[in-house]
Design a protein around this nucleic acid. Structure first.
Ligand code: FES
Ligand code: FES
Lengths: 144, 144
DNA sequence: TTATTAGGGGACAATATTGTCCATTATTAT
DNA sequence: ATAATAATGGACAATATTGTCCCCTAATAA
């Protein structure tokens, strides 16, 4: 469904948001521990999230990654997925045709488009803050 | 969504079925022309489809690939997807946790599971024959 | 100013996926 | 039998993705 990079990106962002709600900045080590991911690779992921203005970072002692409250309310899963996997999941053809086109549909277009649009809505409507709050409430988990 | 191999597998199968309805066997070259795919690679795909008893093949002049009528009514998209991509799309966690588990859900589990189950139903219920007939009727297309 | 802390970035390595090449085998028709 | 046809199979190559290593830069505190 999503690339590994995107999965790490989503999980990292949710974790950072959860900690930011408590006013805590987190280091890369804390992130990788929380989401069970390779450290150096996750570091690249976080850099990309920063470039896309999804998270913030501060160097030096007391530094780390964070997300301000306004951003975590504004950013949705769609923004993160778009950063890593582009828009093929929203717009791409399920059978890999150059472009999805209702007037020249592939054999699965009609059925597939419904699923895909449902997924798009979900990703658009789910904010990072809502996911972070669920996590904080012990209603969801970031690793097995 | 699906691997390239799986996409080629689906398209090949639908095309072969369409031709089989007309009693025609098709060669690799015809398949790759119809679905616009690399020939040697598609050849591997067809071998795998054969191993999984989704299509039949016959060597020699007059030979080629085919699907008998009973099989094309029985085989669904799910069978093909399973052959190439396994069951992660049906059972896997959207955020890549080791296993999807409702009692220890990842942050997107509840929303994601609905989408995923819808996709599963779609793949289970769609037969190759139905897709082949649509294609034959000019209602869908295998390449741009 | 210096030691320490923590993110940034470049090069590289491992792995998986996608794709190619070429020789072989089986089948059919002549 | 022989030639032609068409799938089969193995080795290999290209590319994309995932992951690692190591040094650099910035910030803070002592
Ligand atoms: S054309 Fe394939 S999904 Fe729309
Ligand atoms: S636990 Fe992630 S989708 Fe079910």
């Amino acid at each position: 469904m999503f690339s590994k990079a995107c999965e790490y990106g989503i999980k990292s962002t949710i974790y950072i948001a959860e900690q930011s709600i408590d006013g805590k900045r987190v280091s890369i080590k804390e992130v990788t521990k929380a989401i069970n991911s390779p450290e150096a690779y996750t570091s690249k992921i976080l850099q990309q999230l920063k470039k896309n203005e999804i998270i913030s970072s501060d160097k030096g002692p007391g530094g780390g990654f964070s997300i301000d409250n306004i951003t975590m309310e504004k950013i949705t899963l769609k923004d993160i997925v778009y950063s890593f996997d582009g828009d093929k999941i929203y717009k791409g053809c399920g059978l890999g045709l150059n472009q999805c086109n209702a007037v020249r549909p592939c054999p699965v277009h009609h059925e597939f488009a419904i699923i895909r649009d449902g997924l798009t809505r979900l990703l658009e409507e789910t904010t990072i803050k809502s996911l972070a709050l669920q996590l904080q409430g012990g209603l969801s988990f970031l690793k097995a």
